[in-house]
């Protein structure tokens, strides 16, 4: 479903050309839970931006769900993001002055979904993300970190994307809450068959996935299967 062939990315700043990605090739099948791991400066963020259709590679090709999206315009990329990708960020990026429901239905607003369907789909996504219903009409800045990340996960789920991209989703959470969030991802993967790509610099976090792609200096160092570390659900976020 994700097919990256020889992806290269370089930035030109004045006369200096910085090569960030040096020919990355891999593919991810539908329903996989993959962690992309690497230290800072390894190029994993740049790779995530390309996978998330926020950026295009300088060389190579990237096919997502059968579409070649390595050479699309800004607005075409926006359409891909709207229909095929759900983002979960380290810093949640919720609209603090809006309610949880409104935050979750925001992608549907841009997708032109009628209001009644929006409510239903947002409610379904929030249920999958495991946020208790009594929080749905709270303003998002009244929630705890773990709850905020669940809202962000629900927002990523709501347009039923082909790919969920999580960029350091536990980076702003304590270990306990982080585990709950990782458990949510595992659940979404095993129960709802969502394809998840988790970007992290911590091996501990990466170990919750089924496959770990290790990146260093813009190249794939290692791409191996992993036995996922299971989270036992004994506490709420």
């Amino acid at each position: 479903m994700i097919d990256c062939k020889n992806i290269g990315k370089s930035y030109v700043n004045g006369d200096v050309e910085t090569v960030v990605l040096k020919g990355i090739t891999f593919s991810i099948k539908s329903g996989e839970f993959v962690a992309i791991m690497g230290p800072s400066g390894s190029g994993k963020s740049t790779l995530m931006h390309i996978l998330g259709a926020l950026d295009t590679p300088t060389s190579g090709s990237y096919h997502l769900d059968g579409h070649d999206i390595s050479k699309l315009s800004d607005d075409e990329l926006a359409e891909i993001r709207r229909n095929k990708i759900g983002f979960v960020f380290q810093s949640f990026n919720l609209l603090s002055r809006s309610t949880v429901l409104r935050n979750v239905s925001l992608p549907l607003i841009y997708a032109g979904v009628p209001p009644i369907q929006r409510e239903e789909r947002a409610a379904a996504a929030l249920t999958s993300a495991g946020l208790p219903e009594d929080r749905w009409n709270h303003l998002s800045n009244q929630l705890s970190g773990g709850q905020m990340q669940r809202v962000a996960i629900a927002r990523a789920l709501v347009n039923n994307p082909a790919l969920i991209l999580a960029d350091e989703p536990t980076g702003n959470l304590d270990t306990k809450t982080g585990e709950v969030v990782l458990g949510t991802f595992q659940e979404l993967n095993s129960e709802h068959k969502h394809t998840i790509v988790l970007i992290t610099h911590e091996l501990y976090v990466a170990e919750h996935a089924d496959r770990i792609i290790h990146i260093q200096d813009g190249m794939i160092l290692e791409d191996k299967k992993n036995v996922r570390k299971l989270i036992v659900h004994n506490h709420k976020a």
Partner: peptide, 16 residues
């Protein structure tokens, strides 16, 4: 700025 970035990430076009 961050809010604009987020809106774009979840699929808002320039015109939106």
């Amino acid at each position: 700025t961050r809010e604009i970035g987020l809106r774009k990430a979840i699929g808002a076009k320039k015109s939106d």
